[in-house]
Design a protein around this nucleic acid. Structure first.
Lengths: 341, 341
DNA sequence: CTGAAAGCGCTAACAG
DNA sequence: CTGTTAGCGCTTTCAG
């Protein structure tokens, strides 16, 4: 399966062009101090043999590590992650750093295996959307000189470079918006309860509702809706309560999708504000708390590049802004208010 | 930037545990013929030092190539590509092969650079959605033993493993469906004209319409709508023709999005059938010609695995089926027929 | 069961 | 300007 290839090596190029390996190396890497004639001869030989530099040997020589940067995300096919990945890829490529991506499927064990694999491959840095609770092993790597940047979810057990959304403010924007339309019973459908983003969003939700005088908000919170069907179930559950919530906040794009599937069946659907903007949300009239995942990837990559350039200042924490985008679903008023109009 | 790391090496592990390098290697790779006591000692030392195998050195020794598989796509953030990537990633991971992805942005030159980079990194195989016209250099690599699988777009100049959608049949399903509702003037908005997928879809479009007795179909074809704004412009252009088309076929998800943005402003929008299924198409009532990009990635990965296992049979060509999914937009009838009802 | 030596393909360091 | 030597960290011989 990993048979030795019959690829030409530098040695063969050198032999064919009648120079030493080192001269061939110099010629092909456009180093100075090679005569034009020699360089041409070597390049011709390389061309003829179909030679390609072996980056494995080069990397081993150069410091036993590669220029690859590793990115761990939950799921390549989720637009939040794929936008993030695109932002990171673009920024890294402009610095000549290829990106290697792996999906953890939000499984902490798989995540750790994937990271271990990348570390063995000697990636030069790591961008991680972590679904794990423990990061001590990564802290050890950081001390060995590996830049690690946490994206979207801040590690709870170590201090490290982190780029996160301003969840507190985002949720508050959403709740305040709904409260201003007269809503007091607001439901929240959230992702995996163990994720820091979930906990932050729920905490902000509670704080904002308490401030608005709605004391029993906890009744209307559901967690662990990690896929669309789970989100649909949670929404149905909430709407079956008595009294039912008059508005919903969904904490990510997939959950919002699930909610939409349920709400379209209803004659008088509750108001809806979703965290994460998504394609076609405008056509569907869905109000969202928007932010910029691509920017998150870009900034993470930017920070990696800075760290690789030698910056070893204290860990940085970047907070990305959110923006409430009203499109209709979040502007529906509670039924009892409409009646009085 | 590529400073030598202070990472512990196998030699240090060996020294600390008082055995030879080779014994340490055997112990850490769970090879047979190592006493339990020695193995335990070595593992303890490795643990203590925070040792991690260096895959670069290992790969160099093992055959001067890595186990990485390279994937070239147009744009990570396009759901068609990200689903394809997910399918490939899953299937490859189950065979222990990490995936390294790069976006070409449909630029042939960038594509070639990215592939060259991957080849230098000695990827063990390549999955490519190519936007280039020339693939001779890849054919050379194939002869040197590198499995290459073309996805979505068949190379025109070489014979190689290829997995494509049944574009001919897909478009015919769409056209026939519209013709059955009484449409004869059907517009087509397509992606970059140089892509083989575009050409195949247009050819099928023409054939189906000719069969239906619509001779002037060429008037209603627009190409090179590679982003949403371009698609919007093309749709407006088509609708401004006299007589205007009564139905539209859009040949990918982004173009469909553009068309939807235009159509929603219209009192009597033309019928619409889009190539590619997409999230929320059901909620928006968009009829599509659906297929399975994730499956394409999976099958490509599958073929790679087979080839790596030694299968060197003739190039294979896999055709993926399409399915027409009626959801409303494709069932609107032309205005003149409605009038007569 | 364990170890010594050789070498994967390349480049840094040092001669010529 | 060009060549020789050594060695990156590991695993594959081949001997103990």
């Amino acid at each position: 399966m990993v048979a030795r290839t019959n690829r030409p090596t530098l040695r063969q190029v050198a032999a064919l062009s009648g120079v030493s390996v080192k001269t061939a190396s110099r010629a092909l890497n456009a180093e100075p101090y090679v005569s034009a004639a020699t360089a041409a001869k070597v390049r011709a030989a390389a061309e003829q043999l179909g030679f390609r530099r072996n980056a494995i040997a080069r990397d081993l020589r150069a410091g036993a590590r590669s220029t690859l940067v590793g990115l761990i995300i939950g799921d390549l096919a989720n637009p939040f992650y794929s936008r993030l990945a695109r932002g990171a890829e673009r920024r890294l490529r402009s610095s000549g750093l290829p990106l290697i991506t792996a999906s953890s499927e939000e499984d902490p064990q798989l995540e750790q295996r994937l990271i271990a694999e990348m570390l063995e491959r000697r990636v030069s840095a790591l961008l991680v959307v972590s679904s794990a609770a423990e990061h001590a092993y990564l802290d050890a790597e950081r001390r060995l000189g590996l830049p690690v940047v946490f994206l979207d979810r801040a590690p709870q057990d170590i201090v490290a470079d982190t780029i996160v959304i301003d969840n507190e403010r985002g949720v508050r924007q959403g709740v305040d918006h709904l409260v201003r339309q007269g809503h007091r019973r607001i439901g929240l459908v959230g992702d995996l309860g163990r994720l820091s983003t979930h906990r932050e969003r729920v905490a902000a939700f509670g704080a904002a509702l308490t401030a608005a005088g709605a004391g029993d908000w906890q009744r209307y919170v559901r967690a662990d809706s990690h896929d669309v069907p789970a989100a649909e179930r949670a929404v149905r559950e909430l709407l079956a309560l008595t009294p039912a919530p008059t508005a919903l906040i969904t904490t990510n794009n997939r959950i919002t999708t699930g909610a939409l599937r349920v709400l379209r069946e209803l004659a008088a659907p509750p108001a809806l504000v979703g965290f994460d903007d998504f394609d076609l949300a405008d056509l569907l009239g869905v109000s969202v708390i928007a932010h910029d995942p691509e920017r998150m990837g870009e900034l993470g990559a930017e920070l990696i590049v800075t760290r690789l350039a030698g910056d070893d200042g204290p860990a940085r924490r970047v907070l990305l802004p959110t923006r409430l985008v009203p499109r209709g679903s979040g502007e529906r008023r509670p039924a009892h208010l409409d009646e009085t109009v």
